[in-house]
Amino acid sequence: MLTMGLDIGSTACKSIILRDGEQILARSVVPLGTGTVGPRKAFGEALDLAGVARSEIDRILLTGYGRFSFDDADGQMSEVSCHARGIYFLLPSVRTVVDIGGQDVKALRLSEKGALENFVMNDKCAAGTGRFLGVMAGVMNVKTEDLGALSEGATEEVSISNTCTVFAESEVISRLSAGVRLADLTAGIHASVAKRVASLVFRGGVVRDVALSGGVALNRGVVRALARELKIDVLVHPDCQMAGAIGAALFARQQL
C-alpha cells in the first residue's frame, strides 16, 4: 500500500512516499512554495525517486498553506495535525512539537499515543517565523540554509531588540553598517527568533520531550537558542523538514 504526503508550504514544498505507513520510499524537497512550480516538482520528484507512477499511489493527502491549490490529490488536512503525526512517527517520545514554518509558528501538544490534543499559533506577524530568517539572510547576503553554520563562529551575540520583521531588518542593516561580525549578528538573529517562539511555546505549556519540526529545525543555531530559552533539550530528527509530509502520508494510510 503506497501513500503520498505533499506539504505545500509558503516557501518550500516537501513530498514523501510511504509503503504501508512505515517505510519511507522517497522524499523530495523543493525550495519553492505554493503558487509556483514547486508543488508539481516535489510531487513528480518523489514519484521518480520511488520509481512508481501516480496510478500506483493509493492515496495522496495534501497539507500546508497551499493545501487547497493542488488538484492531483485525494484530500487535505491541516499542517497542525500533520506535523504532530509526522513528529510522533519520527520521535515517539515527543509531547511538545514546535514547528517554525515560513509564515506560521505552531506549538503542538501531543498525547502519549501521539494524538494532537491542543495547539497555539502565532498572531498575524512574521516575527519568529522562517520568513523572518529569510529576510535577515537576504540583508546579510547569505543563504538561509547557511545561517546555522555561520552562527557557530560567533564569539558574542549581537542583540536585536525589534521583533517586528521590518524594524529588525533596519536594525540588522544598522548593525552591519557599524561593522559587527556576521557570525555574531546571526547568533543575535537566532536569539531573537528563539525568544519569540519560546513565548508562544510557554503559552501552550512545555511537556517533555520537545522537538522542533520543519525546515528551520535544520538550523543548529536556532535549535541551540531555542533550547536555551526553553531551558530544555530540543530534539531534532534528520527528517524534521519532512514531518508535515510524513504526517499527511500517514493520515492517507489511515484513511484507506
Partner: peptide, 18 residues
C-alpha cells in the same frame, strides 16, 4: 487589516481535527 483568511482556516481546521 488584522484578519487573515488562511490563518483562520488553518486554526479552525486544526480545531476540527482535534
Amino acid at each position: 487589516r488584522v484578519f487573515s483568511e488562511a490563518q483562520f482556516e488553518t486554526r479552525l481546521q486544526g480545531l476540527v481535527e482535534i
